[in-house]
Write a protein that binds this DNA or RNA. Structure first.
Lengths: 235, 235
DNA sequence: AAGAATTTTGACCAGTTGGAAAAATGTTAG
DNA sequence: CTAACATTTTTCCAACTGGTCAAAATTCTT
């Protein structure tokens, strides 16, 4: 039978050409079939698993295909190149990743806001460790795939939130300090529990390294950010 | 000319067999030549550069050889397998990496001790970012090569230092809190400046992302760990 | 300067990797 | 049911990978 060169699938190639999204200009994008949607998700899920551990270069299509439970050529039918899978994961990631910070609200009071920001970030480290590691891997490599997004979207967001923090400081509701490094320290301390999970578990040992470690971390961080380590009079 | 099967070089194979060090039992280990010492260092340096960015699997011998300025077979003459290079880097790393924590002294006072521990860690992030990233890469992958060292040596060290911190808390010189998570938070906040350097620079922008960022970080962290973010009366 | 040892090179190899092509099999709208 | 399309499998390939080997070049040692 004549090959009938696939016309659907490879949706990423339809939605974006040359790496740039093209609105609805492309020839009738024809909606995704049920199977396409399902399989793409299976693949992205598997790829997240693999990329998070081995990074882009260290991961192979075969590995991803195996985790996804399909053959390599079959996988390549949905995502014609390895980079495409990675790109998709990374761009979806950034949106999710910044969501907690977006929620920080100037109209609230600093401590409840900061406190719940830390909680949310810690929950993400607990519930989405693979995403955290994927992000960390990308950073370690110098963020080759998302450097512009970091320099523009992320920077703008942080600038905005730093402004809010400064406002609170001006009102005397928050200690005067560097708002950027403040945000960094929240990122660092929370993501640590996802990225360095092995180390955390190993050091805490079997007795304290179980599920409770996130609650312990939340309690500790809350105190750290509120009062630091200076001893206070007993209440 | 008859090949005269290399007798020297491949020192790692002489010093350790089957991955385990064997004292001086091996047949006369014959001291390293000048060239051997030099080239091995060049290779380790190059490998650090490459492994730190791409992880073990994502790095190739060719890449390392190129950075080291030699041919692949030549490199393999000094380190007969890729794993050998990595092993050497990782085991040297752990010693260096734990040194700052080792210095924390029970006989000192908590704040000077913690303060200078933070300083030292921050200096390491600044001066040895590749080591930090190599370590981070290893952690992200679940520490396959150093898990026992983490579970034993690192755990013991942290247990000991957590004991010191608890002692200070008992004396009322330090806020009562979780000493393990306290140590984690110092690791996280300081290593962040090496591992997420791209992000830090991008967010701070050209004006504040220069060399001064480590000084700013040091000042911020000092305040965070001392007082937290609660505003204090002006002095 | 000669001989022995060490270091470097170039050619090569088997296994892996990302990916192409085509054929075979499913699915579904009319 | 069947044509048109969607999906999957099989086969294949060129480039890359970690690593070998013998010869050539260089560096000691005496």
């Amino acid at each position: 039978m004549v090959p009938t060169k696939v016309k659907n699938a490879d949706t990423s190639a339809l939605i974006e050409r040359d790496g740039k999204p093209l609105g609805k200009a492309g020839a009738k994008p024809r909606p995704l079939t049920r199977i396409q949607r399902e399989k793409q998700n299976v693949i992205l899920e598997a790829a997240l698993e693999v990329f998070a551990v081995h990074g882009f270069r260290g991961s192979t299509i075969d590995q991803i295909a195996e985790v996804a439970g399909m053959s390599k050529p079959n996988l390549l039918y949905y995502f014609p190149r390895k980079e495409e899978i990675h790109r998709r994961l990374i761009s979806e990631l950034l949106v999710t990743w910044l969501a907690p910070l977006r929620e920080m609200d100037a109209k609230g009071d600093p401590f409840p806001e900061i406190r719940s920001y830390i909680r949310r970030k810690l929950e993400m480290a607990r519930d989405y460790p693979r995403e955290s590691r994927l992000f960390a891997n990308e950073m370690l490599q110098g963020a080759p795939h998302i450097i512009e997004m970091i320099e523009i979207d992320l920077k703008n967001l942080v600038d905005e939130k730093a402004g809010i923090l400064l406002g609170w400081m001006d009102e005397g509701k928050l200690a005067r300090t560097d708002p950027y490094h403040l945000i960094f320290s929240i990122w660092a301390t929370t993501q640590h529990y996802a990225d360095f999970d092995v180390q955390v578990r190993a050091v805490l040992g079997p007795s304290r390294g179980g599920e409770g470690r996130f609650e312990d971390a939340a309690r500790y961080l809350e105190q750290l950010f509120l009062y630091g380590l200076t001893p206070r009079a007993k209440s």
